[in-house]
Design a protein around this nucleic acid. Structure first.
Lengths: 136, 136
DNA sequence: TCGGCATTGCTATAATCAACAACAATTGTT
DNA sequence: AACAATTGTTGTTGATTATAGCAATGCCGA
């Protein structure tokens, strides 16, 4: 079948993102995580005591939608909240959360390595800069 | 805020796809279209009398989910169905549909051009081949 | 030619996700 | 002190995708 769409970078971008998302999600699911959760854990690991709002801002997740995400992480015992002032609360990883993150990070880094390996060598180092230009 | 995620191509891929999707969707919405609809129209333009199954296969859309998509295109008077045999039906653009596609294609090609323009020249020609390697 | 298998188009449903509006409480700003 | 902005919520919605199942039909090998 003739497919005129495949010559569009934007189309390829969506298809590639979808395909890779499905694959990574499957691996993370084995340890009860989704990509968003892992992103939040990573961000909290690098920025302890950040607020839910700040994390959401960084990940482009609305405050309202952070609520169930954080609830899940808290219920799992991976993060803890400590009041900063009357309205803000700092989030940080628990020891348990740090341990989980270590395993998740391994999954992710393995996956990212595989991703780059799929890209022909002559294009490889261009991928990240090109993508960054599209959203940063 | 320190963001360890930004060094991952997979993450950048998802963010870039999401960002660009939002932008293109906004433009297509002005003419009552979504990206999937436009994709289907393009595929039908290049492959008249394809079946719903074949189109779905090409776009990775399940047969069940093609139904409401095609219904919308048919209700809008953009495609027509003609029986091939007892169980299959060929889809093709109506004149109206071809006209709509012409306008949609302009939106898309303008957008794709802008997309590439955002990418620094030295990375530009690497984008499509790199993305293709990730899903094709 | 016939029997089984695959395909097609479809219904119906469930799960997930992101967007939106609104709110009370609190903080910051002038 | 008054006003504006921020925070963490609740509740709801629409859109999207996945899943299972079904009747009708076409295809292919014995």
């Amino acid at each position: 079948m003739r497919d005129p769409l495949t010559r569009y970078p934007g189309y390829a971008l969506r298809r590639a993102a979808h395909a890779t998302t499905v694959q990574l999600s499957a691996r993370l699911a084995e340890m009860g995580l989704k990509q968003v959760h892992t992103s939040i854990l990573m961000l909290l690991d690098a920025n302890p005591d950040s607020t839910a709002s700040a994390i959401g801002r960084q990940l482009d997740i609305q405050r309202a939608n952070m609520v169930p995400l954080l609830k899940k992480l808290e219920d799992a015992g991976w993060i803890a909240r400590t009041p900063i002032d009357g309205k803000s609360q700092g989030l940080r990883l628990t020891d348990n959360g740090r341990e989980t993150l270590t395993r998740a990070r391994k999954v992710i880094e393995d996956f990212e390595r595989e991703l780059l390996a799929r890209v022909p060598a002559e294009h490889r180092e261009h991928l990240l800069p090109a993508l960054d230009a599209l959203w940063r």
